[in-house]
Structure formats: structure tokens, C-alpha cells
Write a protein that binds this DNA or RNA. Structure first.
Length: 421
DNA sequence: ACCACGGTTCGGATTGGGCA
DNA sequence: TGCCCAATCCGAACCGTGGT
């Protein structure tokens, strides 16, 4: 039963980016947000920008397989989608199944739980705050440390990060033909390898609204992945792209629409680009069945939810903050602890950090809990606060839930420190 | 250096609640 | 009642860490 994590919070290793490309992209994204936000004043820009950072991470692992050949329009494309459909056909209202290209769980978890703290740190620093982020241990993911207060304030955070959308990659293809009944015919919509991946001109496919609810894809050039070891091609590409105001403005318009449809489960074709969009409606006759059972594939499973919106994750997060608070804010006195000297005195705050607030599940899963305060008391005779020793401290279940889209705070320090604008 | 361990995310399988 | 889908349960794959 040690509380090492508490004693070493101030001395834990600092989190830093070991590659320039990451910090370069973060700054470029925040520059783009600054410029765009002065025009639109839309509070979603930060979260939209963060999705591009995750996208850069996803695009790292693009491979030759997993592309879909889409012959429609005058320009055939090979597309590399991140939900289970052809992204171009869906904009015409047609569900054309093709498996999504989510990278494996392993690397991505680590990357995002580092990228979100770095993104927030950079953001706060650009607003003139001094920020230290340190690697948490045991139940804590990351510590945010504010040394401008006395005593020092330490925010112990549980991190949950997951993108709303990852836009498909695209390459321009020549029109393909195949053998039909003894004659060559135009190749139809089908899975295909991109045999010339390296040095191919890779684009991001951005849905752009023509007229009310009519969308069509625009291609923005990202650049090239030079060879298998070219890990940061997408970081370079997106950094250059976001300097283009047209791109960022188009992208944000799309992202707002996607966010709205995610929130309302609206009947909008860009809805099908968002994670956790569920089953296609109406389901086409030839829609793919699941491997087992009589169910059908989804476009994107409700489990692959957005931000902190996965139900399992909310529950896990609440347990974590409760455990951290209980151990950290009101330590059990024990002989062992008396002898161990706390390296420094600090004020502990506890909360959850995510890219996007719990849009769908706040009402059912979080709202009933937000106003809970607690204390530890082993008497069974407590029925009102008056039964408690009046000097007994009482704590918040969490001091804040900080996300790029919305901050829920129950603490003055949290409110002022994590104000993003 | 190696290994065992626990933590991460993702996604397949199962459960169960709401609705026709 | 039976069907459908989101919620939940659980395991795979993988990573970092701490002990030997």
C-alpha cells in the first residue's frame, strides 16, 4: 500500500517530445487556430485541430493494402478510409462497405496520451502560463504542475483521448479495366492495393459543402511517404497544409458539421465519417454481415467512441479520480508514512482530461455524480454533516473535467489555470 | 539483458433493455 | 414476444517498468 506516486509527483520525469516534427506540428496547428478563431469565434477549433494531430499519428502507419478503388465521377480514386465505408460513395448517399484502417491499439494509445498533454501544455504556455507536465506513476496518467502558487499546485489527471474523425487518404488513379465476358470492361468499385505507395502523391479527402446538405470531396495534397522508415511524412504534410487558410477553414467547416451530427445523430452524410456512428440506416440489401451470428457490420462501432465518451472509459475514469483523491488528498495515516518525508508540500487537484467532452453520455453517466463531495469517516452514525467533526475536510469527487471543447470545473484554481482563451 | 507483470486501446462476443 | 443495437464483458496485442 504505498503512495509513491504522491511523494514523487514533483520529481517524476518531465514529458517532452523527442522529435521536432511533433512540436512543429502542434505550433502550426495552434497558429492556424489563432488565425481562424479570430474570424469565426468557434470554440470547436481546438478539438478540430487536435484531430489533425491524431490524424498525423494514424497516417504514419499507412500501408500498401487496405485501399479501395472508387471509379465514380470523372476522376477515379484510391481511398484509404477510417470508418467502414467508401467515403466518396457515402457523400452520394450510397453505403459501400470497405474495412476501416485503424492502426493497432498499441502504439496509438501511448502516442495520444502523450500528445494531448503536450498540446494542452503548449496552448497554455502560448497564453502566458508556466506549465510543467510530468509522467504519472501507478494510478496517475500525468501531472500538471503550477509553481506560481504557494504551495505548488499539482493536478493529477486521468487522460482519455480519441478523435472524432480521421479523414481518409486518397490518391489519384487511372481508370482501371478488367476482363469481363471475353472483353475488357471498366473495373468496378473494389478493394485494391496501392502498389506504388512510396513517393505517390497522397491527399487528404475533405468533404466540403456545396449547398445545404450536399457534400463533395476536395483533395488537399499532403505530400509523399518516401520509404518504409519515413515515419513523419504526415507530420510534415499536415504542418504545411494548415498554413493554407483555405484548407483549415474547409476542414473546420466539415468538422463542425461532423461534430453536430455526432451530437444529434443527425441524418447528414458527414455523420458516417465520425467514430461510433453505428449501423448504416437504411441498411442496404448487400451490406456485409458479421463474421459470426446474424448481425451486421457497423460503419463504426459505438465502442470506438469519441473523446471520453466510451461508457467503459467514463466508469474507469471515475474510479481513477476517486482512488487518486482518496489516497492523495486524505492519506491514511500509517507508521510507514510518518517516517517517509514528503519531498515538498503541494496542493493536490484531481480530474479527467480529454480532447472532447462526453457529448452523448454526460447526461446519464456523469451528471448524477458531478455534485458529489466526500470525506472518509468510519463511524456508522453519520446522517447529516452536522454529525461530523466540523473541521473535517470535504473533497470534490473531481476538481475538474478538462476538455478542448468544454471545461467542467468545481475548483477556482482549475477554472483559471485551464482557461484556454 | 531478460522476463514477468500490469496497464493501454481496440474490437469480437454476449447481454439485456426498449420498442414494434 | 422477438428483434435490434448499444452497453458491457472480456481477451488480443503490445508497451513500459521494475526486479533479477
Amino acid at each position: 500500500m504505498n503512495k509513491l506516486w504522491l511523494n514523487f509527483a514533483l520529481n517524476a520525469p518531465q514529458i517532452h517530445s523527442d522529435v521536432d516534427e511533433e512540436m512543429d506540428l502542434i505550433h502550426a496547428l495552434l497558429d492556424a487556430v489563432d488565425i481562424h478563431q479570430t474570424l469565426t469565434k468557434n470554440s470547436l477549433d481546438l478539438a478540430a485541430a487536435f484531430d489533425l494531430l491524431i490524424a498525423a499519428e494514424y497516417y504514419k502507419s499507412v500501408v500498401h493494402s487496405g485501399w479501395v478503388y472508387c471509379p465514380s465521377d470523372d476522376q477515379p480514386l484510391l481511398l484509404y478510409p477510417y470508418t467502414n465505408i467508401c467515403p466518396r460513395c457515402i457523400l452520394k448517399g450510397k453505403f459501400e462497405y470497405h474495412p476501416a484502417n485503424k492502426p493497432g491499439s498499441s502504439g496509438i494509445g501511448n502516442a495520444t496520451s502523450k500528445l494531448l498533454p503536450l498540446f494542452i501544455k503548449t496552448l497554455l504556455e502560448r497564453n502566458g502560463k508556466k506549465v510543467e507536465i510530468r509522467k504519472g506513476i501507478e494510478p496517475v496518467d500525468v501531472f500538471f504542475i503550477d509553481r506560481s502558487t504557494l504551495p505548488v499546485t499539482v493536478f493529477a489527471a486521468e487522460i482519455k483521448a480519441s478523435p472524432l474523425v480521421t479523414l481518409p487518404l486518397a490518391v489519384i488513379s487511372e481508370r482501371m479495366i478488367e476482363m469481363g465476358e471475353g472483353d475488357e470492361v471498366a473495373k468496378h468499385h473494389s478493394p485494391s492495393d496501392l502498389t506504388q505507395l512510396f513517393k505517390a502523391r497522397l491527399f487528404i479527402y475533405v468533404p466540403s459543402q456545396q449547398v445545404e446538405n450536399v457534400w463533395s470531396g476536395k483533395l488537399y495534397e499532403l505530400g509523399t511517404k518516401e520509404n518504409p522508415n519515413d515515419k513523419f511524412w504526415s507530420y510534415r504534410g499536415i504542418r504545411q497544409l494548415v498554413a493554407d487558410r483555405t484548407f483549415f477553414s474547409d476542414y473546420c467547416s466539415f468538422w463542425y458539421a461532423a461534430f453536430n451530427s455526432y451530437e444529434q445523430k443527425a441524418a447528414n452524410s458527414v455523420f458516417w465519417f465520425t467514430n461510433a456512428c453505428g449501423q448504416p440506416v437504411p441498411r442496404p440489401d448487400n451490406w456485409k454481415r458479421r463474421r459470426k451470428g446474424q448481425g451486421f457490420e457497423s460503419v463504426s462501432d459505438s465502442k470506438s467512441s469519441v473523446g471520453m465518451d466510451r461508457t467503459d472509459d467514463i466508469k474507469k475514469g471515475i474510479y481513477q479520480v476517486l482512488k487518486i483523491s482518496s489516497e492523495g488528498k486524505q492519506p491514511f495515516p500509517s507508521a510507514q508514512d510518518e517516517t517517509s518525508t514528503m519531498s515538498e508540500d503541494f496542493n493536490l487537484k484531481v480530474g479527467i482530461i480529454s480532447n472532447i467532452h462526453a457529448v452523448r453520455h454526460f447526461e446519464d453517466y456523469l451528471k448524477p455524480l458531478v455534485d458529489i463531495v466526500w470525506t472518509r469517516e468510519n463511524s456508522r452514525q453519520i446522517h447529516t454533516v452536522a454529525d461530523l467533526d466540523s473541521s473535517k475536510p470535504v473533497f470534490n469527487l473531481f476538481d475538474g473535467i478538462i476538455t478542448l471543447t468544454q471545461t467542467l470545473s468545481r475548483d477556482d484554481w482549475v477554472s483559471s489555470y485551464f482557461s484556454f482563451s
